[in-house]
């Protein structure tokens, strides 16, 4: 397990990243109704970005 201090900084960074990925104006870039892999692009993007935040958090915590 890495030291608490470093872990805290990583978590803060992930929080900041999540805030940027999951709000306007980033969402505007993906604001299209086209289907990608059978799923609307915006929907696909939001879920993938969400999952990315979760996975990064898990890595920061568990490693």
């Amino acid at each position: 397990m890495i030291k608490g201090d470093k872990r805290g900084q990583r978590l803060l960074a992930i929080f900041a990243l999540g805030c940027i990925l999951l709000t306007y104006p980033m969402l505007q870039i993906f604001n299209h109704g086209d289907l990608v892999l059978g799923v609307p692009l915006l929907v696909l993007y939001v879920f993938l970005a969400w999952l990315a935040v979760i996975v990064l958090t898990a890595l920061a915590i568990e490693r």
């Binding site: 299209h32 109704g33 799923v39 915006l42």
Partner: peptide, 30 residues
């Protein structure tokens, strides 16, 4: 699910749900 999305995409009143739209949900509210 892909077929479901395809059917919905064919309907303009449902396809609007795929994107942000000032009349449905705005970024501010988000």
């Amino acid at each position: 699910a892909d077929l479901l999305y395809e059917q919905a995409a064919a309907r303009p009143d449902l396809a609007r749900l795929f994107t942000f739209n000032p009349t449905t949900i705005e970024f501010g509210e988000w």
